[in-house]
Write a protein that binds this DNA or RNA. Structure first.
Length: 771
DNA sequence: TAATCTCGCGCC
DNA sequence: AAAGGGCGCGAGATTA
């Protein structure tokens, strides 16, 4: 029996104790300490395990050598600790491992030691907590799914006063790292520079905590009846079989195309910025504004930057100080100069000695330096706003929260017809966005030609992924925007490619959320749309507006999309929006129609689909009574404030007349907040049911696809997921075989009552051409 | 200077 | 009186 405490494994006897502890334990919490957050490039400096609450082992494999200023490998009895660690870790296969963010520790361990522990992963505590408490330890002063934050949230339940303890430990650790010359900034947290005894305590405590959190939330999982949901149907299978492999595999980047695009787009940016500046500087008032602003920002002065710049521009022969490399401008130094107007100015500070053009030149030069050599900064909304509103007399469309006239895309758009500079600015802004968000990111952060996207399985309340892949620009058709914008917009997805000899099966669900919507609401009119293979938005428009003589049949001559595309597009704007709680006010804004007209649409829509209306009412009633809502596959969204508010005051808060009384009782701000919470909750409960179901459909299909690939012995995997799209990466020769079963599995893995799903596959060499 | 917040825009 | 959901990113403003 091992005593309850934490051990540091630096000798043979303790190592044997650790081995014994592993062998005796079934559930083991595991964690790594590393010198980097990059799982492919970093080093493991130690790992910790806990097989029992109160017990923790930390085995250091590398320690910071303060003299050498580097990490050196530890030894036990003359044996290197990396080899010993690998051997010890191999004992973990077949155990039930508990980790917190296993994708990190699991991939790190596999890369560094060649030990793949993921098959033995039993539970990830970050996901476990997310499953029963989807917002995590929100409001506990840090990351909602951070180990410490979670521990603090449940410290009473797990019998630890972790809050004070963790804070103390953090302080000691940080102090210690600093003393050893390490950095403790968030972006560069050099934990590996801490003293071994401190690091060890910290690491062992972490696995102990992980195990306690697992034990506690396992009970909650049972209470909430989510055991199968977590272990069998969704969370852990997705994590082990899809999420971690996706993060591990990454995506190949077309470096040649990237390189070429980088050069091209930089040239085009320069060209357009010049065009903007040229057009603007043709205007007298703008030129005057530049000078006036430059002088105001850098007024004439015989000291400081102005004087320095003056000497520079006029090549004044003065000595420079060694330290700052600046001209020495004290009196003694100045007196050595030959007589000149500038000398008089520098000594007296009286600007009358300087010719006006010299005075202005210096101010302008300094102003231009601030703006990277330009007369103004076209990336500065502030400067452009001043030019547009104050100089050119453009009328603002809107103002910021602080009341300043807003110079946003809408503004630019609205004046681009009359102002050529604005049109060029629009192009410039679009291109800059593409360059900074995608070109630079892929270029700077690819590793040997691969980019590793992240897929955070606990990133959303609905079970969707949080990922940096989700807003890759969708391909635009010619004519949708200026040709140059279309070009650069569309090149982004083409950066992401299949490897030599491999191919992508790119498969999107056809209107997945509307399908979920038709199924969940039980509305026959909605279900019929898909079963008849009609056009969704056309049908919605026809029923809502009671249109006659038009059809939602895609093949009919009077197909609405052909004869009245405007009406169909309007339906696009509200068909899901209204289901999620949108009202006439917001609809009138998005469609740019009167609120009365919008009101007719909202009423028409709800009347046209009576079961949808009923579903909205029933869902809201349920949340008011129970404080949570579940989706069709059992994932839960807690909305306790709705129940709380409803218990307290019923629906009075929704009635503005009743609100007046409530304001007297509770105060105005309080009532406003309560109103917002209540309203949000009542809308969330609608959206959640559909969005989370759609996520489950896609994720479960992904698991099924990876299993099928393994079963058939095909070297392939789901490589990426973007909400309702899966990208499967396989050897070229399997393209058609895989495409066939990918479609089948996406359409049939999760059956939605009353509708059949459609997911036609495309075969492509990159992430663009499948669309 | 770095961390954090807010805004506007991209995606579904 | 206030009036659709879920995200991530860059840039600028603000705070420590």
């Amino acid at each position: 029996m091992i005593e309850k405490k934490y051990y540091t494994v630096t000798d043979r006897a303790t190592l044997e104790l650790l081995v014994q502890h592993i062998k005796e334990s079934e559930y083991i919490a595991y964690d790594t300490e590393t010198n980097s957050l990059n799982v492919r490039k970093g080093k493991i400096i130690g790992f910790s395990v806990s097989g029992d609450e109160g017990i923790g082992f930390y085995m250091p494999t590398m320690v910071w050598d303060r003299n050498k200023e580097e990490l050196v490998e530890c030894e036990i009895d003359g044996h290197g600790c990396h080899a010993l660690a690998k051997k010890t870790l191999s004992l973990l296969h077949g155990k039930k491992l508990i980790m917190h963010n296993a994708s990190f520790d699991g991939r790190f361990t596999k890369n560094f030691y060649g030990e793949d522990l993921i098959p033995s992963l039993h539970a990830d505590t970050a996901l476990l907590v997310h499953t029963v408490k989807e917002e995590g330890a929100f409001g506990f002063g840090g990351k909602p799914f951070g180990l410490k934050e979670i521990a603090i949230m449940v410290q009473r339940e797990i019998g630890l006063d972790i809050e004070t303890k963790a804070n103390e430990e953090q302080l000691i650790l940080k102090e210690n790292i600093k003393r050893n010359g390490g950095s403790i900034t968030k972006t560069n947290y050099e934990i590996y520079k801490a003293d071994l005894n401190i690091l060890s305590e910290y690491a062992a405590a972490d696995t102990d905590l992980t195990l306690r959190i697992f034990n506690h939330f396992s009970k909650v999982l049972i209470e909430e009846n989510l055991v199968d949901f977590f272990y069998v149907d969704e969370v852990m299978p997705i994590y082990k079989e899809v999420t971690i492999p996706m993060e591990e595999f990454g995506v190949k980047v077309d470096l040649d195309l990237l390189q070429k695009t980088k050069i091209d787009i930089e040239a085009d940016l320069l060209k357009h910025s010049k065009l903007v500046a040229e057009e603007l500087l043709k205007i007298d008032d703008v030129r005057a504004w530049v000078i006036q602003t430059a002088v105001a920002s850098y007024p004439c002065n015989n000291k400081g930057t102005y004087a320095q710049k003056l000497c520079d521009l006029e090549s004044i022969d003065l000595p420079k100080s060694d330290k700052s490399n600046k001209y020495v401008l004290n009196k003694a130094s100045l007196l050595t100069l030959p007589e000149s107007a500038i000398k008089d100015f520098l000594i007296s500070g009286d600007e009358k000695f300087l010719p006006q053009n010299t005075r202005l030149k210096v101010s302008l030069e300094l102003w231009k330096e601030e703006n990277e050599g330009k007369f103004f900064n076209i990336q500065s909304k502030d400067q452009l706003g001043k030019i547009a509103f104050d100089v050119l007399g453009v009328t603002p469309l809107s103002s910021t929260t602080k009341g300043k006239a807003q110079f946003d895309d809408d503004m630019i758009e609205s004046i681009s017809k009359d102002h050529p500079w604005a049109e060029n600015l629009r192009v410039y802004n679009k291109l800059l966005k593409v360059k900074s968000t995608y070109v630079d990111r892929f270029f700077d952060r690819h590793e040997d030609g691969r980019y590793y996207f992240y897929f955070k399985q606990n990133g959303t309340v609905s079970g969707r992924y949080g990922s940096d892949m989700q807003q890759l620009p969708k391909p635009k058709e010619d004519g949708e925007a200026a040709p140059i914008i279309v070009h650069y917009n569309n090149v982004v997805r083409a950066f992401l490619i299949a490897e030599e000899g491999r191919i992508l099966i790119d498969c999107d669900y056809e209107s997945l959320e509307p399908h979920c919507f038709a199924s969940v609401t039980g509305d026959e009119n909605l279900r019929e749309i898909f079963n008849k293979n009609h056009d969704f938005y056309s049908t919605v428009a026809i029923r809502t507006e009671k249109l006659e003589g038009v059809s939602a049949d895609k093949k009919a001559d009077n197909f609405l999309k052909k004869v009245d595309p405007v009406r169909r597009n309007r339906a696009k704007a509200y068909s899901l929006g209204i289901a999620y709680g949108m009202e006439s006010f917001a609809l009138s804004k998005t469609l740019d129609i009167s609120q009365k007209e919008a009101d007719v649409l909202v009423k028409g829509y709800l009347d046209g689909f009576p079961d949808l209306k009923r579903w909205r009412e029933e869902s809201r009633k349920f949340v008011k009574e129970h404080g949570y809502i579940s989706n069709k596959v059992g994932r839960i969204r807690h909305l306790p404030s709705v129940k709380k508010i409803h218990d307290l005051m019923g629906d009075a808060i929704l009635d503005w007349r009743a609100r007046k009384d409530l304001e007297d009782q509770y105060g105005r701000e309080q009532v406003t907040n309560v109103y917002r919470d209540y309203r949000n909750g009542l809308n969330n409960c609608l959206n959640y049911q559909l969005q989370s179901l759609a996520a489950a459909v896609v994720n479960r299909a992904a698991v099924a696809i990876n299993r099928e690939l393994i079963k058939r012995g095909i070297d392939g995997r789901v490589q990426a997921q973007v909400h309702d799209q899966l990208v499967v990466n396989v050897p070229e020769e399997y393209a058609h075989e895989v495409a066939e079963f990918v479609q089948d599995l996406m359409e049939n893995t999760t059956k939605l009552e009353g509708v059949t799903l459609k997911a036609p596959p495309a075969i492509a060499k990159n992430f663009r051409d499948g669309h």
